[in-house]
Design a protein around this nucleic acid. Structure first.
Lengths: 203, 203
DNA sequence: TTGTCACTATACCGGTCGGTATACTGCAAT
DNA sequence: ATTGCAGTATACCGACCGGTATAGTGACAA
Protein backbone atom coordinates (compact mmCIF):
# COMPACT_ATOMS: atom_id res chain seq x y z
CA UNK A 1 0.00 0.00 0.00
CA UNK A 2 0.77 3.73 0.07
CA UNK A 3 3.78 3.86 -2.17
CA UNK A 4 5.78 7.00 -2.37
CA UNK A 5 6.15 8.60 -5.75
CA UNK A 6 9.44 6.97 -6.59
CA UNK A 7 8.04 3.52 -5.90
CA UNK A 8 4.89 4.32 -7.83
CA UNK A 9 6.93 5.29 -10.88
CA UNK A 10 9.07 2.19 -10.60
CA UNK A 11 6.03 -0.02 -10.28
CA UNK A 12 4.29 1.51 -13.27
CA UNK A 13 7.46 1.21 -15.31
CA UNK A 14 7.96 -2.39 -14.23
CA UNK A 15 4.51 -3.45 -15.33
CA UNK A 16 4.91 -1.79 -18.70
CA UNK A 17 8.45 -3.06 -19.25
CA UNK A 18 7.41 -6.60 -18.46
CA UNK A 19 4.13 -6.68 -20.33
CA UNK A 20 5.14 -4.78 -23.48
CA UNK A 21 8.90 -4.90 -23.57
CA UNK A 22 11.47 -2.31 -22.58
CA UNK A 23 12.16 -0.68 -25.93
CA UNK A 24 8.45 -0.65 -26.69
CA UNK A 25 7.74 1.39 -23.56
CA UNK A 26 8.26 5.14 -23.75
CA UNK A 27 8.77 7.39 -20.78
CA UNK A 28 5.58 9.25 -21.62
CA UNK A 29 3.63 6.04 -21.20
CA UNK A 30 5.30 5.38 -17.86
CA UNK A 31 4.57 8.89 -16.66
CA UNK A 32 0.94 8.58 -17.67
CA UNK A 33 0.55 5.17 -16.01
CA UNK A 34 2.08 6.48 -12.79
CA UNK A 35 -0.10 9.60 -12.89
CA UNK A 36 2.80 11.96 -12.66
CA UNK A 37 5.06 14.00 -14.91
CA UNK A 38 8.37 13.61 -16.64
CA UNK A 39 9.96 16.12 -14.30
CA UNK A 40 9.24 13.91 -11.30
CA UNK A 41 10.44 10.80 -13.08
CA UNK A 42 13.74 12.43 -13.91
CA UNK A 43 14.06 13.62 -10.34
CA UNK A 44 14.29 10.04 -9.12
CA UNK A 45 15.85 8.36 -12.13
CA UNK A 46 18.60 10.02 -14.05
CA UNK A 47 17.65 8.36 -17.33
CA UNK A 48 15.44 5.68 -18.81
CA UNK A 49 18.38 3.30 -18.66
CA UNK A 50 18.66 4.00 -14.96
CA UNK A 51 14.99 3.15 -14.54
CA UNK A 52 15.42 -0.06 -16.51
CA UNK A 53 18.28 -1.14 -14.27
CA UNK A 54 16.21 -0.32 -11.18
CA UNK A 55 13.36 -2.38 -12.60
CA UNK A 56 15.60 -5.41 -13.14
CA UNK A 57 17.32 -5.16 -9.77
CA UNK A 58 14.04 -4.95 -7.90
CA UNK A 59 12.60 -7.77 -9.95
CA UNK A 60 15.64 -9.88 -9.16
CA UNK A 61 15.20 -9.38 -5.44
CA UNK A 62 11.41 -9.70 -5.39
CA UNK A 63 11.26 -12.72 -7.62
CA UNK A 64 13.94 -14.64 -5.78
CA UNK A 65 12.38 -13.97 -2.39
CA UNK A 66 8.99 -14.99 -3.68
CA UNK A 67 10.37 -18.05 -5.40
CA UNK A 68 12.34 -19.37 -2.44
CA UNK A 69 9.32 -18.80 -0.23
CA UNK A 70 7.10 -20.71 -2.58
CA UNK A 71 9.47 -23.64 -2.87
CA UNK A 72 10.09 -23.86 0.87
CA UNK A 73 6.37 -23.62 1.48
CA UNK A 74 5.67 -26.58 -0.77
CA UNK A 75 8.27 -29.07 0.38
CA UNK A 76 10.54 -30.00 3.27
CA UNK A 77 13.27 -32.27 1.98
CA UNK A 78 15.93 -31.11 -0.50
CA UNK A 79 14.74 -33.57 -3.10
CA UNK A 80 11.13 -32.49 -2.75
CA UNK A 81 12.23 -28.88 -3.00
CA UNK A 82 14.12 -29.56 -6.21
CA UNK A 83 10.93 -30.98 -7.65
CA UNK A 84 8.74 -28.26 -6.19
CA UNK A 85 10.68 -25.76 -8.30
CA UNK A 86 8.82 -27.05 -11.31
CA UNK A 87 5.46 -26.83 -9.62
CA UNK A 88 6.12 -23.22 -8.69
CA UNK A 89 7.13 -22.19 -12.17
CA UNK A 90 4.16 -24.17 -13.50
CA UNK A 91 1.81 -22.08 -11.41
CA UNK A 92 3.62 -18.88 -12.29
CA UNK A 93 3.26 -19.65 -15.98
CA UNK A 94 -0.45 -20.19 -15.60
CA UNK A 95 -1.25 -16.64 -14.56
CA UNK A 96 -2.61 -14.67 -17.53
CA UNK A 97 -0.09 -11.86 -17.07
CA UNK A 98 2.78 -14.29 -17.67
CA UNK A 99 4.99 -12.99 -20.44
CA UNK A 100 8.11 -15.08 -19.96
CA UNK A 101 11.15 -14.26 -17.90
CA UNK A 102 11.88 -10.56 -17.57
CA UNK A 103 15.61 -11.23 -17.60
CA UNK A 104 15.62 -13.47 -20.63
CA UNK A 105 13.50 -10.89 -22.42
CA UNK A 106 15.75 -8.04 -21.36
CA UNK A 107 18.84 -9.93 -22.49
CA UNK A 108 17.13 -10.53 -25.83
CA UNK A 109 16.31 -6.84 -26.22
CA UNK A 110 19.87 -5.82 -25.32
CA UNK A 111 21.95 -8.56 -26.88
CA UNK A 112 25.45 -7.20 -26.33
CA UNK A 113 27.13 -8.90 -23.41
CA UNK A 114 28.75 -5.68 -22.23
CA UNK A 115 25.44 -3.86 -21.91
CA UNK A 116 24.51 -3.19 -18.26
CA UNK A 117 20.97 -4.40 -18.84
CA UNK A 118 22.34 -7.64 -20.19
CA UNK A 119 24.73 -8.02 -17.28
CA UNK A 120 22.11 -7.50 -14.60
CA UNK A 121 19.96 -10.08 -16.32
CA UNK A 122 22.81 -12.56 -16.36
CA UNK A 123 23.36 -12.08 -12.63
CA UNK A 124 19.86 -13.26 -11.90
CA UNK A 125 20.52 -16.69 -13.32
CA UNK A 126 23.78 -16.93 -11.42
CA UNK A 127 21.80 -16.44 -8.23
CA UNK A 128 19.11 -18.79 -9.42
CA UNK A 129 21.56 -21.56 -10.16
CA UNK A 130 23.27 -21.09 -6.81
CA UNK A 131 19.96 -21.64 -5.10
CA UNK A 132 19.44 -24.88 -7.00
CA UNK A 133 23.03 -25.98 -6.45
CA UNK A 134 22.63 -25.58 -2.69
CA UNK A 135 19.56 -27.78 -2.75
CA UNK A 136 21.35 -30.30 -4.93
CA UNK A 137 24.23 -30.46 -2.49
CA UNK A 138 21.92 -30.96 0.49
CA UNK A 139 20.18 -33.65 -1.50
CA UNK A 140 23.43 -35.51 -1.94
CA UNK A 141 23.97 -35.15 -5.65
CA UNK A 142 27.26 -36.50 -6.92
CA UNK A 143 27.83 -33.30 -8.91
CA UNK A 144 25.53 -30.59 -7.54
CA UNK A 145 26.72 -27.90 -9.91
CA UNK A 146 26.11 -30.04 -12.94
CA UNK A 147 22.69 -31.07 -11.72
CA UNK A 148 21.85 -27.46 -10.94
CA UNK A 149 22.84 -26.34 -14.40
CA UNK A 150 20.83 -29.12 -15.99
CA UNK A 151 17.75 -28.31 -13.95
CA UNK A 152 18.09 -24.62 -14.68
CA UNK A 153 18.24 -25.42 -18.38
CA UNK A 154 14.94 -27.24 -18.01
CA UNK A 155 13.45 -24.29 -16.16
CA UNK A 156 14.63 -21.73 -18.68
CA UNK A 157 13.54 -23.93 -21.55
CA UNK A 158 10.11 -24.38 -20.04
CA UNK A 159 9.70 -20.65 -19.52
CA UNK A 160 10.71 -19.83 -23.06
CA UNK A 161 8.58 -22.59 -24.49
CA UNK A 162 5.54 -21.47 -22.55
CA UNK A 163 6.11 -17.87 -23.57
CA UNK A 164 6.06 -18.88 -27.20
CA UNK A 165 3.00 -21.05 -26.93
CA UNK A 166 0.85 -21.09 -23.84
CA UNK A 167 -0.40 -24.27 -22.22
CA UNK A 168 1.86 -26.68 -24.05
CA UNK A 169 2.71 -28.62 -20.91
CA UNK A 170 6.29 -27.43 -20.66
CA UNK A 171 6.40 -27.32 -16.89
CA UNK A 172 5.01 -30.84 -16.55
CA UNK A 173 7.49 -32.31 -18.99
CA UNK A 174 10.32 -30.35 -17.42
CA UNK A 175 9.35 -31.90 -14.10
CA UNK A 176 9.29 -35.40 -15.56
CA UNK A 177 12.74 -34.87 -16.95
CA UNK A 178 13.89 -33.40 -13.65
CA UNK A 179 12.72 -36.46 -11.74
CA UNK A 180 14.91 -38.70 -13.86
CA UNK A 181 17.91 -36.38 -13.68
CA UNK A 182 17.62 -35.90 -9.93
CA UNK A 183 17.32 -39.59 -9.18
CA UNK A 184 20.11 -40.41 -11.56
CA UNK A 185 22.35 -37.91 -9.86
CA UNK A 186 22.49 -39.72 -6.52
CA UNK A 187 25.21 -42.31 -6.62
CA UNK A 188 23.95 -45.54 -8.06
CA UNK A 189 24.77 -44.28 -11.51
CA UNK A 190 28.23 -43.32 -12.76
CA UNK A 191 29.05 -39.64 -12.77
CA UNK A 192 27.75 -38.04 -15.94
CA UNK A 193 31.17 -36.74 -16.88
CA UNK A 194 32.29 -40.33 -17.39
CA UNK A 195 29.89 -40.48 -20.31
CA UNK A 196 31.30 -37.49 -22.14
CA UNK A 197 33.51 -37.93 -25.17
CA UNK A 198 35.76 -35.07 -24.10
CA UNK A 199 36.18 -35.90 -20.44
CA UNK A 200 37.73 -34.27 -17.46
CA UNK A 201 36.65 -30.65 -17.44
CA UNK A 202 34.20 -30.63 -14.57
CA UNK A 203 34.51 -28.27 -11.58
CA UNK B 1 26.56 -15.10 -54.77
CA UNK B 2 25.11 -12.34 -56.90
CA UNK B 3 22.01 -11.52 -54.94
CA UNK B 4 19.35 -9.39 -56.48
CA UNK B 5 18.39 -6.24 -54.69
CA UNK B 6 15.51 -7.73 -52.78
CA UNK B 7 17.70 -10.50 -51.40
CA UNK B 8 20.45 -8.03 -50.59
CA UNK B 9 18.03 -5.93 -48.56
CA UNK B 10 16.67 -8.98 -46.77
CA UNK B 11 20.15 -10.19 -45.95
CA UNK B 12 21.28 -6.85 -44.60
CA UNK B 13 18.12 -6.59 -42.53
CA UNK B 14 18.55 -10.13 -41.23
CA UNK B 15 22.05 -9.51 -39.99
CA UNK B 16 21.04 -6.31 -38.23
CA UNK B 17 17.86 -7.76 -36.77
CA UNK B 18 19.73 -10.74 -35.39
CA UNK B 19 22.78 -8.95 -34.10
CA UNK B 20 21.15 -5.84 -32.62
CA UNK B 21 17.52 -6.74 -32.16
CA UNK B 22 14.51 -5.89 -34.31
CA UNK B 23 13.23 -2.81 -32.53
CA UNK B 24 16.77 -1.49 -32.24
CA UNK B 25 17.23 -1.61 -36.01
CA UNK B 26 15.83 1.28 -38.03
CA UNK B 27 15.04 1.14 -41.72
CA UNK B 28 17.66 3.81 -42.38
CA UNK B 29 20.33 1.51 -40.99
CA UNK B 30 19.09 -1.36 -43.13
CA UNK B 31 19.09 0.81 -46.23
CA UNK B 32 22.61 1.98 -45.52
CA UNK B 33 23.87 -1.55 -44.88
CA UNK B 34 22.31 -2.78 -48.11
CA UNK B 35 23.73 0.16 -50.05
CA UNK B 36 20.39 1.20 -51.41
CA UNK B 37 17.56 3.62 -50.64
CA UNK B 38 14.33 3.59 -48.74
CA UNK B 39 12.37 3.80 -51.96
CA UNK B 40 13.79 0.48 -53.11
CA UNK B 41 13.22 -1.15 -49.76
CA UNK B 42 9.57 -0.14 -49.78
CA UNK B 43 9.25 -1.39 -53.32
CA UNK B 44 9.92 -4.95 -52.17
CA UNK B 45 8.60 -4.82 -48.64
CA UNK B 46 5.38 -3.00 -47.85
CA UNK B 47 6.48 -2.14 -44.33
CA UNK B 48 9.13 -2.84 -41.74
CA UNK B 49 6.81 -5.42 -40.22
CA UNK B 50 6.65 -7.13 -43.58
CA UNK B 51 10.43 -7.22 -43.69
CA UNK B 52 10.60 -8.63 -40.20
CA UNK B 53 8.23 -11.43 -41.12
CA UNK B 54 10.27 -12.16 -44.24
CA UNK B 55 13.40 -12.28 -42.11
CA UNK B 56 11.88 -14.80 -39.72
CA UNK B 57 10.38 -17.00 -42.43
CA UNK B 58 13.67 -17.22 -44.30
CA UNK B 59 15.57 -17.86 -41.12
CA UNK B 60 13.14 -20.62 -40.25
CA UNK B 61 13.74 -22.37 -43.56
CA UNK B 62 17.49 -21.78 -43.70
CA UNK B 63 18.17 -22.75 -40.14
CA UNK B 64 16.14 -25.93 -40.28
CA UNK B 65 17.75 -27.08 -43.50
CA UNK B 66 21.19 -26.34 -42.12
CA UNK B 67 20.40 -27.99 -38.80
CA UNK B 68 18.99 -31.19 -40.25
CA UNK B 69 21.97 -31.40 -42.60
CA UNK B 70 24.39 -30.98 -39.75
CA UNK B 71 22.72 -33.61 -37.60
CA UNK B 72 22.46 -36.12 -40.42
CA UNK B 73 26.08 -35.49 -41.32
CA UNK B 74 27.24 -36.27 -37.82
CA UNK B 75 25.36 -39.46 -37.06
CA UNK B 76 23.58 -42.39 -38.63
CA UNK B 77 21.34 -44.01 -36.07
CA UNK B 78 18.32 -42.23 -34.57
CA UNK B 79 19.85 -42.32 -31.11
CA UNK B 80 23.13 -40.88 -32.31
CA UNK B 81 21.24 -38.19 -34.17
CA UNK B 82 19.31 -37.23 -31.07
CA UNK B 83 22.61 -36.77 -29.30
CA UNK B 84 24.24 -35.04 -32.26
CA UNK B 85 21.63 -32.30 -31.89
CA UNK B 86 23.50 -31.08 -28.87
CA UNK B 87 26.86 -31.16 -30.60
CA UNK B 88 25.45 -29.08 -33.43
CA UNK B 89 23.98 -26.44 -31.17
CA UNK B 90 27.19 -26.52 -29.17
CA UNK B 91 29.19 -25.62 -32.26
CA UNK B 92 26.64 -23.04 -33.30
CA UNK B 93 26.89 -21.35 -29.91
CA UNK B 94 30.65 -21.16 -30.18
CA UNK B 95 30.71 -18.84 -33.18
CA UNK B 96 31.34 -15.26 -32.07
CA UNK B 97 28.31 -13.92 -33.93
CA UNK B 98 26.04 -16.08 -31.79
CA UNK B 99 23.37 -13.93 -30.20
CA UNK B 100 20.85 -16.54 -29.10
CA UNK B 101 17.88 -17.82 -31.00
CA UNK B 102 16.34 -15.32 -33.40
CA UNK B 103 12.86 -16.66 -32.70
CA UNK B 104 13.14 -16.59 -28.95
CA UNK B 105 14.49 -13.06 -29.21
CA UNK B 106 11.73 -12.00 -31.56
CA UNK B 107 9.07 -13.47 -29.30
CA UNK B 108 10.63 -11.58 -26.41
CA UNK B 109 10.57 -8.32 -28.33
CA UNK B 110 6.95 -8.84 -29.37
CA UNK B 111 5.42 -10.48 -26.33
CA UNK B 112 1.76 -10.54 -27.32
CA UNK B 113 0.73 -13.97 -28.52
CA UNK B 114 -1.48 -12.56 -31.24
CA UNK B 115 1.34 -10.62 -32.83
CA UNK B 116 2.35 -12.04 -36.24
CA UNK B 117 6.03 -11.85 -35.33
CA UNK B 118 5.33 -13.86 -32.22
CA UNK B 119 3.30 -16.40 -34.14
CA UNK B 120 5.92 -17.02 -36.82
CA UNK B 121 8.48 -17.51 -34.08
CA UNK B 122 6.26 -20.04 -32.36
CA UNK B 123 5.89 -22.00 -35.58
CA UNK B 124 9.62 -22.56 -35.73
CA UNK B 125 9.66 -24.51 -32.51
CA UNK B 126 6.68 -26.56 -33.63
CA UNK B 127 8.73 -27.63 -36.63
CA UNK B 128 11.79 -28.14 -34.51
CA UNK B 129 9.97 -30.39 -32.07
CA UNK B 130 8.45 -32.38 -34.90
CA UNK B 131 11.92 -33.09 -36.19
CA UNK B 132 13.01 -34.36 -32.79
CA UNK B 133 9.82 -36.33 -32.31
CA UNK B 134 10.40 -38.17 -35.58
CA UNK B 135 13.88 -39.15 -34.46
CA UNK B 136 12.54 -40.19 -31.08
CA UNK B 137 9.95 -42.42 -32.72
CA UNK B 138 12.52 -44.06 -34.98
CA UNK B 139 14.67 -44.56 -31.93
CA UNK B 140 11.90 -46.46 -30.24
CA UNK B 141 11.03 -44.09 -27.44
CA UNK B 142 8.03 -45.11 -25.37
CA UNK B 143 6.62 -41.59 -25.62
CA UNK B 144 8.35 -39.81 -28.51
CA UNK B 145 6.42 -36.58 -28.12
CA UNK B 146 7.26 -36.29 -24.47
CA UNK B 147 10.90 -37.05 -25.09
CA UNK B 148 10.96 -34.54 -27.94
CA UNK B 149 9.50 -31.83 -25.74
CA UNK B 150 11.95 -32.59 -22.98
CA UNK B 151 14.92 -32.49 -25.32
CA UNK B 152 13.71 -29.28 -26.91
CA UNK B 153 13.45 -27.73 -23.45
CA UNK B 154 17.11 -28.60 -22.92
CA UNK B 155 18.03 -27.09 -26.27
CA UNK B 156 16.11 -23.88 -25.67
CA UNK B 157 17.44 -23.64 -22.15
CA UNK B 158 21.00 -24.11 -23.34
CA UNK B 159 20.60 -21.45 -26.02
CA UNK B 160 19.16 -18.93 -23.59
CA UNK B 161 21.73 -19.73 -20.97
CA UNK B 162 24.58 -19.35 -23.41
CA UNK B 163 23.14 -16.09 -24.69
CA UNK B 164 23.14 -14.68 -21.18
CA UNK B 165 26.63 -15.84 -20.33
CA UNK B 166 28.96 -17.22 -22.93
CA UNK B 167 31.01 -20.36 -22.45
CA UNK B 168 29.23 -21.64 -19.38
CA UNK B 169 29.06 -25.18 -20.69
CA UNK B 170 25.34 -25.23 -21.33
CA UNK B 171 25.51 -27.43 -24.41
CA UNK B 172 27.68 -30.03 -22.71
CA UNK B 173 25.41 -30.27 -19.68
CA UNK B 174 22.35 -30.33 -21.88
CA UNK B 175 23.88 -33.28 -23.70
CA UNK B 176 24.62 -35.10 -20.45
CA UNK B 177 21.02 -34.64 -19.40
CA UNK B 178 19.83 -35.73 -22.83
CA UNK B 179 21.81 -38.97 -22.63
CA UNK B 180 20.01 -39.91 -19.45
CA UNK B 181 16.59 -38.93 -20.73
CA UNK B 182 17.05 -40.70 -24.04
CA UNK B 183 18.22 -43.93 -22.47
CA UNK B 184 15.53 -43.75 -19.87
CA UNK B 185 12.90 -43.35 -22.55
CA UNK B 186 13.41 -46.76 -24.13
CA UNK B 187 11.34 -49.27 -22.25
CA UNK B 188 13.21 -50.64 -19.28
CA UNK B 189 11.91 -47.78 -17.20
CA UNK B 190 8.23 -47.07 -16.46
CA UNK B 191 6.58 -44.45 -18.61
CA UNK B 192 7.17 -41.02 -17.17
CA UNK B 193 3.47 -40.26 -16.95
CA UNK B 194 3.19 -42.93 -14.28
CA UNK B 195 5.30 -40.70 -12.08
CA UNK B 196 3.09 -37.64 -12.34
CA UNK B 197 0.81 -36.64 -9.49
CA UNK B 198 -1.93 -35.61 -11.92
CA UNK B 199 -1.86 -38.56 -14.28
CA UNK B 200 -3.45 -39.53 -17.52
CA UNK B 201 -3.26 -36.52 -19.83
CA UNK B 202 -0.64 -37.66 -22.28
CA UNK B 203 -1.20 -37.75 -26.06
C1' DT C 1 4.28 35.39 6.59
C1' DT C 2 7.69 33.85 4.45
C1' DG C 3 10.58 30.29 2.76
C1' DT C 4 11.21 25.65 1.48
C1' DC C 5 10.18 21.65 -0.78
C1' DA C 6 7.72 17.96 -3.37
C1' DC C 7 5.24 17.87 -7.13
C1' DT C 8 2.61 19.54 -11.31
C1' DA C 9 1.87 21.71 -15.89
C1' DT C 10 3.35 22.67 -20.15
C1' DA C 11 6.05 23.97 -23.66
C1' DC C 12 10.03 22.93 -25.85
C1' DC C 13 14.62 20.73 -27.60
C1' DG C 14 17.19 18.00 -31.29
C1' DG C 15 16.98 13.65 -33.08
C1' DT C 16 15.07 9.59 -34.95
C1' DC C 17 11.15 6.80 -36.20
C1' DG C 18 8.48 4.53 -40.23
C1' DG C 19 6.95 5.96 -44.50
C1' DT C 20 6.15 8.93 -48.86
C1' DA C 21 6.57 12.38 -52.87
C1' DT C 22 9.12 13.96 -56.61
C1' DA C 23 12.56 14.13 -59.72
C1' DC C 24 16.37 11.93 -61.82
C1' DT C 25 19.71 8.29 -63.98
C1' DG C 26 20.94 4.53 -66.78
C1' DC C 27 19.98 0.61 -69.32
C1' DA C 28 17.50 -2.58 -72.16
C1' DA C 29 13.69 -3.73 -75.43
C1' DT C 30 10.97 -2.38 -79.17
C1' DA D 1 14.68 7.25 -80.96
C1' DT D 2 11.33 6.25 -77.53
C1' DT D 3 9.38 4.01 -73.98
C1' DG D 4 9.50 1.54 -69.82
C1' DC D 5 11.43 0.09 -65.87
C1' DA D 6 14.89 -0.71 -61.94
C1' DG D 7 17.07 1.82 -59.01
C1' DT D 8 18.94 6.39 -57.00
C1' DA D 9 18.86 10.87 -54.60
C1' DT D 10 16.89 13.78 -51.59
C1' DA D 11 13.74 16.27 -49.30
C1' DC D 12 9.97 15.88 -46.68
C1' DC D 13 5.92 14.21 -43.53
C1' DG D 14 3.75 13.73 -38.79
C1' DA D 15 4.68 11.24 -34.79
C1' DC D 16 7.28 9.95 -31.26
C1' DC D 17 11.78 9.46 -28.81
C1' DG D 18 14.52 10.68 -24.36
C1' DG D 19 15.35 14.67 -21.92
C1' DT D 20 15.08 19.71 -20.23
C1' DA D 21 13.63 24.60 -19.05
C1' DT D 22 10.50 27.48 -16.75
C1' DA D 23 6.82 28.68 -14.12
C1' DG D 24 3.39 27.53 -10.86
C1' DT D 25 0.94 24.77 -7.30
C1' DG D 26 -0.17 23.52 -2.45
C1' DA D 27 1.30 22.05 2.08
C1' DC D 28 4.06 22.40 5.91
C1' DA D 29 7.60 24.56 9.08
C1' DA D 30 9.90 28.58 11.34
Amino acid sequence: MSLNLQEKILQAASELFYSQGIRATGVDAIVKAANTTKMSLYKYFSSKDDLVIAFLRKRDEDFRVWFVDQVNGKADTPKAKLLAIFDVIGEWMAVPEFRGCAFINAAAEFPLEGNPVHQVSAEFYDHFRSFIADLAEQYGSKSPKNLALQLSLLVEGAIVSEQMKRHSGSAEQAKQAAIILIEGSLGDIPDTTLLTDNSGEEQ
